[in-house]
Design a protein around this nucleic acid. Structure first.
Lengths: 229, 229
DNA sequence: TACGGTCAGTGAACACCGTTCACCTGCGCT
DNA sequence: AGCGCAGGTGAACGGTGTTCACTGACCGTA
């Protein structure tokens, strides 16, 4: 009984169900096949093996995270950049918390010995996600809400790296303007990672929401300039 | 040829070598036995299975991280609390970077479906590590270097949780004093996690040290009061 | 209508895994 | 000398990823 037409989407969806149920180790080729009413070798027509399955899964989850954040943007006025940044950040955190397994797969400890293929779907999906936040920071800069720092305050190595990164990403920013972008990304991911992996449990038990929101507000204070009126 | 006497230490050391070589998936009971010149079932005299092996490994790595941080403390004057905090933090970061696999095992995505045994060696080792940083913050408080905040600034839920945590840990602190401790722990772990997992590569390539040190200094600025003289 | 070819899926097989079990085997103690 | 037992073995079970030769259904063409 081959109920489903056996597209890669179906493969990914089934893999994801297994991931959620039992972690990355539980994503097992034979079980995916079993749930699709088919034997394992059949999957090799669509996928080159387990690693490929995981690659597709990572890419799909990254896409979903990106979509969730973009949908959150739609709720706020196009001109309120602060609200957009807040919405995207909180949406990302909410997605991560609701899908810890997926988050772990994408942003957690890289499965050593599983090297994501260069220029594969995962890195492209990652770029899409990065561009989303990048464009928010461009908007912040244009509306004079970005708390940039003096280039001279940056150690030369950092300054140079930021110049290169801005060039590579095509961001029309000087290092002191790229800096808050990188800091924002870095701290946001750190905040969420530590929360999702449960390393705040010892302090707050199961309810970390209030604390995390506080951390985000402190981060926004560091990143944003007050509205000029 | 049973060269080594087959203590749990030897088991852990061998498992760790496998971990470093090929990630958590590569710590394989049969291979551990093979390297010890013994067959797999022999290990079951010393260890109840693969999960037990991983548990011991996690505990050992946590112990090592703790030791590394404590040794770093010895280098600085007993009265210079700021130097001690800085030394411990940088030592932790250096250890994590030098041992990404071990760090991932301890602080990375929890291996879902692998539940660390309650009250096992892992949680005790974790407590030891937490106490180290906790005592640093107690010292900061006593030497009036801790940038505490007004209790009233904390949302009620956060405040109450911090009161409970302080009581449970036996820390003689009010919530506004516990807060920077938790924030410090949270941000430090976040900073290190994101760096170790390589999610700063897009901005800095392989050399993230300067940026990370900058982040730590910003963190210390938020945590510490200037010396009163 | 009959034929050839492509595609999707199968079953068996290989090598490996964690784990259990009955079975030694050699040492120390009585 | 003989017993007991800690420590190690080999075989086995059920599971895994992956490969391979194979079947069978479908489809365009002669």
């Amino acid at each position: 009984m081959a109920s489903a037409p056996l597209t890669t989407e179906v493969l990914v969806a089934t893999s994801r169900a297994l991931l959620v149920e039992g972690g990355a180790d539980a994503v097992v080729v034979r079980e995916v096949a079993r749930r699709l009413g088919v034997t394992a070798p059949a999957l090799y027509r669509y996928v080159s093996g387990r690693d490929d399955l995981l690659t597709l899964l990572i890419a799909a989850c990254t896409e979903e995270a990106t979509s969730v954040c973009m949908e959150a943007l739609e709720g706020c006025g196009i001109d309120d950049v602060e609200a957009r940044l807040r919405a995207a950040t909180l949406a990302f955190r909410a997605w991560a918390l609701a899908h810890p397994s997926e988050f772990g797969l994408v942003y957690g400890t890289p499965i050593l010995h599983y090297a994501a293929p260069e220029e594969g779907p995962t890195v492209e999906a990652g770029r899409r996600f990065g561009r989303l936040f990048g464009s928010l920071f461009v908007d912040l800069l244009e509306t004079r809400r970005l708390r940039a720092i003096d280039d001279a305050l940056l150690p030369p190595a950092v300054r140079q790296a930021l110049v290169d990164t801005a060039a590579r990403l095509g961001l029309p920013m000087r290092p002191g303007e790229v800096y808050p972008f990188v800091v924002g990304w870095h701290r946001m991911l750190g905040i969420v990672s530590v929360e999702v992996t449960g390393h705040l449990h010892w302090a707050f038990g199961g309810d970390t929401t209030a604390f995390i929101h506080l951390q985000f507000e402190e981060l926004f204070d560091d990143l944003l300039l007050p509205v000029v009126r």
